[in-house]
Amino acid sequence: MDCEEYRQRIEADPAWVDEAGAAHERDCGACAAYARRLRVSERLISEALRFDVASVRERDGASTPPRLRRSMGTTWAMAASASVAAFGVWLVLTFIPSGDPDRLVAAVQDHWYHEPTSWVQTSAPVSASALESALTGTARVDLDRLSVVSYARSCLVNGRWVPHLVVQGEAGPVMLLLLSREDIAETLPLDLPQEGLHGVIMPLDEGSIAILGEDDESLEALQQDVAEAVEWAI
């Protein structure tokens, strides 16, 4: 093995070693030194690639207007929805505001399917800036009255941008949609029996809040906590 062949091979994979390569490294001081330096740069490449995901998301959220950012997400959400359900139905449920309670329930149920990655049991809270970005202009939330908020995004539901939070309940994750402009006359049942989920959309002042959790989640206590924790900002 000559120097050129050795260096090409080690540049393709600095961890590579075989008998011929090891022999060349022993016999050629220049290549041995080159390999050592390359392994140093490899650590740097690895660190450079493994950036902190939360801080990049946070930075992106802070530097991009939320509505612009969400409109891009909505484009893809639309496309995904076409494979889940009839595109037209989703379009109506998502983009056209409606005072129809049945359509509101359907839009909230539909939204649960859009963010499966939010549905995780965890003790890790979402960052304060992500929470603030999701809530801006809609609501204030007293975090002392809720358990861990593990997820927060601003999402388009029933034609309106609403904060989508996930809090950690006693039985698992619980989805909260803060529907500040969905004025309903009475509490609406919000069940997804095929997914083992149950919930309600409960009126709160001039708006309402959708709560969806695991079947064995106690809703009464949660409803009370949420009602006390949320205050509309508009």
């Binding site: 990049v56 992106d60 950012r69 997400g73 893809w76 959400a77 995904a80 399917y113 499966p116 990655t117």
Partner: peptide, 14 residues
């Protein structure tokens, strides 16, 4: 970052 978020979101759904 936003596009990456969308790509991963859709990929997770799939």
């Amino acid at each position: 970052p936003s596009l990456a978020d969308d790509v991963v979101q859709e990929a997770m759904l799939r």
